[in-house]
Amino acid sequence: MIAVIWEVTSRLSSLPDFMFPGLLQVLDTLVNGIISGQITEAILKSIGRILLGFTIAIVIGLILGYFIWRYKLVEDTLGFVVTALQSIPSIVWFPLAIIWFGLNDFSILFIVTIGATWTMTVNATSGFKNVPQLYQRVAKTYGSSGFHFLRTVILPASVPQIISGLRIAWAFSWRALMAGELLGGGGGLGQLLEMGRSLGQMDLVISVMIIIAIIGTIVDNVVFSRLERNVQLKWGVSSR
């Protein structure tokens, strides 16, 4: 239905083809792009970047979360700063990143990471804080302490919250990645968008948009939803 409306309005509209391409043309470009490797290459490049940035963000987020949870002083100081930082859209960091690191891959990686870090920190902190006192007491009476306590109680007990943190963090860094690539270049889907614009190839732009939507959906629905469901099943929390 949407496809038909799209195709028809495109044909009827007064805009030239390159500005408002029809569905068929877009699909054509999409398939060609994938076959020729242009789009595929961009996808791989973008995914590589986000995986790296996202992983760094998770690690930093968990560590910061740990310190905020563990030490009152850190919570009072850093905890507040993190909340403030969290409200800054990560693309806002880009000018700063360009000046610091130059207009390169590293700048993009920086904003991808920073986009996810704060959310992850906030979620990890609240995850750790909400570990029921009961579990902590139980573990302690069995002689658990230190790193073992962290690994066998605090971390697993906060898994549900950490997963929802991952989900939001992923969404943030995905957006940051696209914005960064769009402005910073260096390959990837974002740059392909920019290229499509400058070449006046809206069919390419729309193809890339479709790819972005598909990847976003896949990650959210397949990866995170499945993770969440597995945990819910295992824990027997709300079964939908």
Binding site: A157, K234, W235
Partner: peptide, 15 residues
């Protein structure tokens, strides 16, 4: 571990 507690809620680890 030589003085273990059984709590009111079992406190089993759900994971």
């Amino acid at each position: 571990p030589e003085r273990v507690v059984v709590f009111q809620e079992a406190g089993l680890f759900p994971w």
